[in-house]
Design a protein around this nucleic acid. Structure first.
Lengths: 127, 127
DNA sequence: CAAACTGTACTAGTCGTATAATACAGTCAA
DNA sequence: TTGACTGTATTATACGACTAGTACAGTTTG
């Protein structure tokens, strides 16, 4: 069962997108695996303190990407494969890395300082 | 005059927030300096193809942070100081770095691989 | 079977972002 | 002074994200 116990939604980004990211990153990290059971829409929404429709939207999008399967009445499960995980890993990494590199460069930070900053702040980042 | 010629709004984030970031990062980079003249609300909105109210909202927030001054009828100017720039630099860097570090760690990337990825993708990031 | 769960669907409302069209007052240069 | 520009303010509209409540159909388990 995927617990979502480390999931903490933040402001500024739609919650359903944060749920998508959480699951995808978990899949890449290996903490979320093929066949894993997802909490029900109602249970998860109560757990996170958000609306069931928001969870439903996130899960529907996960299903659109064929990362989970759902059928009415039964629970939902992860449907991962090595190929899917590899695709996720590449997509997420590229997006994250390029975003930060662009931001730092726009602030006049050079490559060496960027590497130093990332190294120094690595431990202090949120999980 | 601040030209905004490298400003390209993207989807997913409110435009007025992107304008804020653009100006702040420019100030940190030194490409935007104290006393620099800002384009008028009407001119900039026409230039960017967005609504004047959106620009006004961004400029009002910049004024709230005392990074620009505005008075009706006259043009608006940057009001920066070494202390303000230093504060901006720390705020922006911390936010950016911690964001990327947290995302990478959540995907199971260790420190060494993160540094390698940033190093390899540095040149390919958008300006 | 029956109860309790599951996913799914629908309507209605709030809030923030963004657009659109005006209007008014102050500044500045010809 | 006059006119063209500035910043500022207002109202209305549209859309997406999110909340709230309800309903229905299918599955699972006792």
């Amino acid at each position: 069962m995927i617990t979502f116990n480390t999931f903490k939604p933040t402001e500024g980004t739609p919650i359903y997108q944060q749920i998508l990211l959480y699951v995808k990153r978990g899949a890449v990290a290996g903490t979320i695996r093929d066949g894993d059971e997802l909490p029900s829409r109602r249970v998860l929404s109560a757990l996170l303190g958000i609306n069931p429709n928001t969870v439903q939207k996130a899960f529907r999008l996960l299903e659109d990407e064929e990362l989970i399967t759902s059928q009415t009445g039964a629970k939902s499960y992860m449907t991962l494969s090595a190929a899917k995980i590899e695709r996720l890993r590449e997509d997420l990494l590229r997006e994250d890395i390029r975003g930060i590199a662009g931001a730092l460069r726009q602030m006049g930070i050079d490559k060496e300082e960027a590497l130093r900053l990332l190294s120094e702040n690595w431990e202090e980042s949120e999980s």
